[in-house]
Design a binder for these strands. Structure first.
Lengths: 112, 112
DNA sequence: CAGGTTCGTAAGTCAAGACTAACGGTAAGC
DNA sequence: GCTTACCGTTAGTCTTGACTTACGAACCTG
């Protein structure tokens, strides 16, 4: 659980940066090499490499060497972890709201 | 569309900060006042106020004044926007992988 | 083997933003 | 009315991290 939480934590921080989110979004369309990725980015190629490293550490992407080219692709497990966290938050928030609504309804019944 | 994208963008950036994510997670358990929120946080109360402002601008929480106390609670629409974005990424990534797998299977009958 | 790609890393600069202290403003209590 | 809570904002400091340039490693190609 700690590993999952840690992974989700890193994933949120990784997706917090607009440049990284842009790279991640482009990788969602399909695997791509660093050079191609950098060609469409607003920053230099080394910057792209650094961002890809962060995304990789966050388990959001995976790297595969093909000759001299490094192909990056999305790691579905990373998205899954983030989505699970989001669902958990949504669930508890809904439960809390429901409890609050029930309590309010209870008071209304008593007042009647 | 642009409004949704913009909202999702701000939400990702808002959830990128560990302190803000901690506050958001505590609010998921139920509505809370700023003072109570600051009491359990590692930073000062003004810092909590600033973070809550960012979360509010990102449509992730809503504020309600009750006397001199300001009660913050989670805005389900904010989570929804982020989750939708995540689902979209996951969907396109899966489609891209499927297309790649189909193409490989088509062409590499003899290889591998 | 020499030359040209492709990519990651190191060093250094610099701006964004996270934080605290101090102040002002509003609502409840005496 | 006066004081006491509770909260938001401002001003200013300081750390984090995003970025570029320069360099070197690994790889293919001729």
């Amino acid at each position: 659980m700690a590993a999952v939480s840690r992974r989700a934590r890193d994933a949120f921080e990784a997706l917090g940066d607009p440049t990284r989110r842009s790279l991640f979004e482009r990788l969602a369309a399909g695997p791509m090499a660093v050079g191609d990725l950098a060609a469409g980015a607003a920053v230099s190629r080394p910057a792209v490499s650094q961002h890809l490293k962060v995304l990789e550490e966050a388990q959001l992407v995976t790297k595969t060497a093909v000759g001299a080219r490094h192909i990056y692709r999305i790691d579905p497990r990373g998205i899954g972890a983030v989505r699970d966290k989001l669902d958990a938050w949504h669930g508890t928030a809904m439960a809390a709201f429901q409890a609050f609504a029930d309590a309010e309804h209870e008071k209304d019944e008593v007042l009647k």
